[in-house]
Each structure stands twice: as C-alpha cells, then as structure tokens.
C-alpha cells in the first residue's frame, strides 16, 4: 500500500513528462479509436454543461450588441468572408489535459467587435452560448492581447458540434474554459460578470501561466 502511495506521488511529479512519452507511444494507434479512450493520447475530451451537445439552427447568426454604435449579427458565411486568421496552439484544459498544435481558423475577436463601433466605456465583452447556460467574459484589452479568435474551423475541418460548432471562441494563453463553445452572442458592457465556471470557483483571469504573457502573442 505504501508502495502504491509512493508510486502515486512520483506519478504526479513525473506525470507531465511521462504523458508526453505515452502520447508518443500511442501515436501509432491514432485513428484506431483506442486513443479516444486511453488517457494521455493527446486527444480532446469534449465537455458540455447541459444535457448533450446543442445543435445550431440553419439560420445561425452571431449577434454583437451592447455598448456599441452599430449592433450587428453575422452568419457563418459573413464570418468566412472576413479576413481569416490561422493559429497553431496547444489547447490547455484547466483540469490538466492538453492537446498540442491545434490548428484554428477564425476571425480576430477584436476586429469583429471593432466593426460594431464600441463605445469608449464598453471595455468588457460578455459571451453567451446557445446551449442556454454557458457564459464567459473577457476584457477588450485581453481580447487584443491574446489575439482571441471567433473560430469556425479547427484541426483542418469545420468546427464539429462536439467542439462547439458552428462558431466558438478560442482564447490563446488562457485555459480552455475561456474558449466558449456554441457561441451565440457577444455583448459589450462596462463591467466584468464572471462566466459559468468562474461563478463556480475558476479564476476570471484564466491565464495558463498565472499572469499575462510578457510579449504579445
């Protein structure tokens, strides 16, 4: 029993490097379905806080409103017609798993908000999901600093329903819970309202390193 305890403690310490080894060892199994079940396969675990993965209607539109001069709503086609930004980043979940080199395509969040002419007092963005429950928040300066995306493609394909399709947020430098899935609206406000998990104890400023990056990303 003491042996198990020692192994467990050692595992916590060396786990991160072991995990890389395990991911490499499981590489040949990619696509066999096994990697989805075995821990450390470097894959996503798709989360949802409601019953199942919600589905968008065919008339999906992303609304941007609040303290803005020109509220607007965008269809997927509208977003795809805007200048696309490509990012390759590690997706880091707050619960400890991560997926390296995820390829994202989307519209720069700050550019999209800029189109609706936000008022100077509108320093905060509030996001809602069409799952009807999940919410998130980001200051406009954080949106700028992180280069956050309103993403519609991921891993070389349109966003799947499980990954939050058709449109989700992707916030680099922050834990995955910031990257709200099934994005339905962005509201410009003047004060921070904690999002879904943040009301349950997660930090509102979700920097993976505990602080903003020293150099702009």
């Amino acid at each position: 029993m003491l042996g198990m305890l020692a192994l467990g403690a050692a595992g916590v310490v060396v786990g991160p490097s072991l995990e890389q080894g395990v991911s490499a060892a499981l590489e040949p199994l990619q696509g066999s379905g096994l990697t989805g079940v075995l821990p450390g396969g470097g894959g996503f675990i798709e989360y949802t806080v409601v019953a199942g993965f919600p589905a968008a209607g065919r008339d999906y539109r992303l609304r941007v409103d609040g303290l803005v001069g020109a509220p607007a709503s965008f269809s997927l086609d509208d977003l795809e017609a805007m200048p696309a930004v490509h990012l390759d980043r590690t997706f880091q979940c707050v619960t400890g798993w991560s997926v390296p080199d995820v390829h994202w395509v989307g519209v720069r969040l700050s550019d999209l908000v800029e189109r609706t002419r936000p008022e100077p007092t509108g320093t905060v963005l509030h996001f809602t999901s069409f799952d009807g429950v999940y919410t998130e928040t980001l200051t406009r300066s954080q949106a700028e600093q992180t280069g956050a995306l309103v993403a519609y493609r991921m891993l070389g394909a349109p966003l799947t329903r499980g990954h939050g399709g058709p449109v989700r947020l992707y916030v680099p430098e922050m834990f995955g819970y910031k990257s709200i899935k099934w994005l339905s609206s962005i509201t410009v406000t003047d004060r921070v309202e904690p999002g879904y998990w943040e009301r349950n104890g997660y930090p509102v400023d979700a920097w993976i390193d505990g602080h903003p990056p020293t150099t702009a990303s």
């Binding site: 595992g11 916590v12 310490v13 786990g15 991160p16 995990e19 821990p39 400890g96 991560s98």
Partner: peptide, 10 residues
C-alpha cells in the same frame, strides 16, 4: 499547472 497535469495523468 505541472502538478495538475501529473495528477490528471495519474
């Protein structure tokens, strides 16, 4: 974070 990654792994 490293501890959490290790804890998740274990």
């Amino acid at each position: 974070l490293d501890w959490r990654v290790g804890a998740t792994f274990v």
